[in-house]
Amino acid sequence: MTKVASSRWRAFRAAAFYVTATLLVAVWLLPLVIGVFTSLKSMDEIMANPVMWKPPKALRFENFGEAWNRAGMGRYIVNTFIVTIPSVAGALAVSSLAAFALAFYRFRLNKAVLVLFVAGMLVPFQMLMIPVFRMSNGLGIDDSFGGLILFHISFQLGFCTFFLRNFMKQIPYSQIEAPRIDGASDFTIYARIIMPLALPSIAALAVLEFTWIWNDLLWSLVLLRSDAIKTVTLGLANMQGEFITTYNLTAAGSILAAIAPVAVFLAFQRYFIEGLTMGADKG
């Protein structure tokens, strides 16, 4: 291949990449674009000109104000932070203990415990609605932030443990060998050696868990009764019953509810992909 041909080839490849990638992303995001456009239109425009992918003629930002006020979004969003942040932190902290044990110790029930954690992920969890409510109610912790947080932490342990254990398995054993010989305790190895190494994957997991717990509807429904502590998905559900025919307000409310998880993802996306790395270069 001559130099000219090869540089043309490279240019062609670059062009092909950008065209394909742009088209792909555009098609994939069309539903979201429709959501955003709808949130900015007036109902008259939506009804008179039902071509959803056309940009709004005039931007009606008032829709957002109206959705915010009428649905009481502000308080719901604060509540959701109060639930989500400790739940994510707790799930990661607690599951990292289990993942460490399953990744680095050899003991008879190792696989059995792993299977137990994975098996818990397999049930249709709607089935747990009544038993979980009963248990929370019996302990007197239903209808409180704490009860919901405690449940979220426990419920996410299956996936988090499975995920972190897979990651920790990739950490070369040599990383542990040296400090062990130096007489470091198991807990020191967990806290000082393994956790820092696992940090990227913990960060990635945090992003995933944040979006899941933020977007949870079912468990908030089961475990929260008081309006004062309800989360944003419940607010959105109430609002959808109320504004089902005013598509623009529903869309605006949805966008308000989605801001936090999208922002968290954007803020952490750099760590996200890196942290999910299962590591092809295993030790």
Binding site: G90, G140, D143, S144, F145, G146, G147, I149, L150, I229
Partner: peptide, 13 residues
């Protein structure tokens, strides 16, 4: 962790 959660829960009554 358990103590913190219990405390947190107890506050909501």
């Amino acid at each position: 962790v358990l103590a913190a959660t219990t405390l947190f829960v107890a506050c909501g009554k």
